[in-house]
Design a protein around this nucleic acid. Structure first.
Lengths: 244, 244
DNA sequence: GCGACAAATCTTGCATACAAGGCGAGCAAG
DNA sequence: CTTGCTCGCCTTGTATGCAAGATTTGTCGC
């Protein structure tokens, strides 16, 4: 468990600290979230940690294995497809309902694209992950529907977890170009095209996943020890049972 | 607080008991959900009731007024529009991604339409409300996306609360005919048309609302004094802070 | 050395106790 | 009759304690 920037976000902040840690890829799928440790970090009792976990569970961000602990979800390949499917439905549906791009909207999106470009240039992968997810949330924000924004935020969090599990390598530039063309279509006022491009973009990203790859049960330990990811097939006795 | 059919759904069932009570219009918006009473009804301690409330809060079904109690949400007119907007986006998006109707799907939908017709004939309004909401969930189920089903179920719950607040009278037959034409389009295999009809249908229903009707008799005074609409605090999800 | 068993040590699950604050009844004063 | 005040009841907020189960570790027999 890495830093979750405790303190200031103390009050109702446990939820958001976890979510934003996921959104910026600072926390891996399958990470154990110990009630005691979180309670200590945020200087509250387990009760409040538990409440936060319940809320996150309802949002599909964590799940609990009875009497074992809370874990950041590790979406299965099937769930991964479901998430991408849901995003295609919502994002395309959203773009199709939009009819014009306000001036400030144009500015927001272009600024965002510039940020993405900067992050690519700087090779800041963590920031890039965050930005790539944020792009889609930004669009929902432009549409002005708070409910859809919340839904997409949670789906984006899951998407990031999925990519940490299954993404072989990160075609940042390809994604960035996808975003650029979506924005271009929006600037043309052609939102049908933007919707189609959005579907295509999500298809591309999903295709880039290796959904046959079984999640590595040792991933977090490996990560903590800064070992190279999955060099060879795990030795015989490393096989642990899948989580429920 | 009416019957929530306790007992059998005991384990994790408080959440679902509340939701299904809303879905079948057995519980009104603004209803107070006392922790003690629920605890007594389900024969558990307040702890578990509280956990259920936390989850429901995250789903936008209830909210808490500090030290006063938990209440079934009373969507404002603005929130009502947002909910309908979100449903239009998702349901139309969903239909547009569908390409064919399976045989069992056809059966399910036609059975459902028959049920609606029967409920209309019987004048069973409560059952009708339930069925009218369920129709849209059924479609999502046909599409086979569990995430969207969950999302739509929660949105449907909110929709029902909205109609209890703002619906002057229930044009059941009109809604039923809307459903019929959507199914007809699906049977033709014309899902673009089905999507368009779905949007139209939701527009119709929304238009049938009297969103000027204030659930709050003090609304005028409140407005005159420039106080925030509705006494309830903004939903927890509404106050998300920016990401890192 | 190695596998099986058992105890120790964590973990969450759940209930309860107490604290903090809202709300209304009742009362007094104007 | 209305207004202002106080007290007591009732609500949620939060912490803590203990029980139940899972995991790990240590140990024994082989």
């Amino acid at each position: 468990m890495q830093d979750l920037s405790p303190q200031q976000t103390a009050q109702n902040g446990i939820d958001e600290a976890v979510v934003s840690s996921i959104l910026s890829a600072r926390i891996r799928p399958g990470t154990r979230l110990s009630e005691n440790q979180l309670a200590a970090l945020f200087d509250v009792s387990r009760t409040r940690v538990r409440e936060a976990m319940m809320r996150l569970e309802a949002r599909g961000i964590v799940n609990v294995s009875p009497r074992r602990g809370w874990f950041v979800v590790e979406p299965s390949a099937e769930e991964a497809m479901t998430v991408y499917d849901a995003r295609r439905v919502i994002e395309a549906g959203l773009l199709r309902t939009m009819s014009r791009l306000t001036e400030t909207g144009r500015t927001v999106l272009n600024t965002h694209l510039a940020d993405e470009k900067a992050a690519i240039a700087a090779g800041d992968r963590q920031r890039l992950t965050c930005l790539m997810g944020d792009f889609h949330i930004r669009i929902a924000e432009l549409a002005g529907n708070a409910i859809l924004v919340d839904i997409l935020r949670d789906l984006t969090a899951r998407t990031i977890l999925i990519s940490m599990l299954y993404q072989s390598d990160f075609h940042a530039m390809q994604s960035h170009l996808g975003h650029c063309s979506i924005v271009a279509a929006m600037e043309e006022g052609d939102f049908q095209k933007a919707a189609a491009l959005s579907v295509e973009h999500l298809d591309e990203v999903e295709t880039g996943l290796d959904l046959t790859r079984r999640p590595d049960p040792l991933a977090d330990l490996r990560h903590s020890l800064s070992l190279p990811p999955q060099t060879v097939a795990p030795s015989s006795k490393a096989s642990r049972k899948a989580k429920p």
